[in-house]
Design a protein around this nucleic acid. Structure first.
Length: 174
DNA sequence: TCACGGTCCAACG
DNA sequence: CGTTGGACCGTGA
């Protein structure tokens, strides 16, 4: 298992990387770990790319796409993994509701289960769980702090109307 | 089994 | 519109 630190406008991020792909991202990382990149693995080809993608993303560069990075989902329970893989397809600056995601996975009525699954996401931004919101356009919850969710959505240009809701056209499905 | 969520819906006022 | 109570579903203990 490798790990390395990434410097962004939103602070330091620690990325943990295994043989199969990225395992987790940790925000607000203030530790002093050295960047560890062992020779011979595939990581040194991947990480400069991830490094710049994240830097550009937090600079506010539009439509940054993280789908080319391989992620390791082996540790997630089956439904959770399916939820995470599914919501990975939500494009930059768009959103979808918890219930629509549940429905798409053949689990209509499982909106709370979807929320619970998203709360276990160890790969924020790369797996954009902040793009899943309540059906009525309200932001919904975020286990690591709602301010972060609002910040990420705002960074992507998502606007909230006077009632604090996201308008219809931003949704890919409801 | 049971309790717990990043929810949803209908029924109020 | 805002609030409230109950129902729904996957996990982990």
């Amino acid at each position: 298992m490798y790990h390395f630190k990434i410097f962004t406008l939103w602070g330091n991020i620690l990325a943990v990387y295994g043989r199969r792909g990225i395992l987790s991202l940790h925000f607000d990382h203030t530790g002093e770990e050295e960047v560890k990149v062992k020779a011979g693995g595939s990581i040194e080809r991947i990480w400069p790319d991830l490094f710049t993608a994240l830097q550009n993303y937090f600079k506010g560069k539009r439509s940054i796409d993280f789908s080319r990075f391989s992620v390791d989902m082996k540790e997630y329970p089956p439904f959770t993994a399916r939820v995470l893989e599914h919501i990975r397809q939500i494009p930059y600056g768009r959103v979808c509701s918890y219930s629509a995601a549940a429905r798409a996975l053949g689990c209509s009525g499982g909106s709370r289960a979807v929320g619970r699954a998203l709360g276990r996401n160890r790969l924020p931004v790369i797996i954009p769980c902040h793009r899943v919101v309540n059906q009525d356009g309200c932001p919904g919850g975020f286990s690591s702090g709602l301010e972060k969710k609002l910040g990420l959505l705002t960074l992507e240009g998502v606007k909230f109307n006077e009632l604090g809701r996201i308008n219809d056209e931003v949704f890919i499905s409801r």
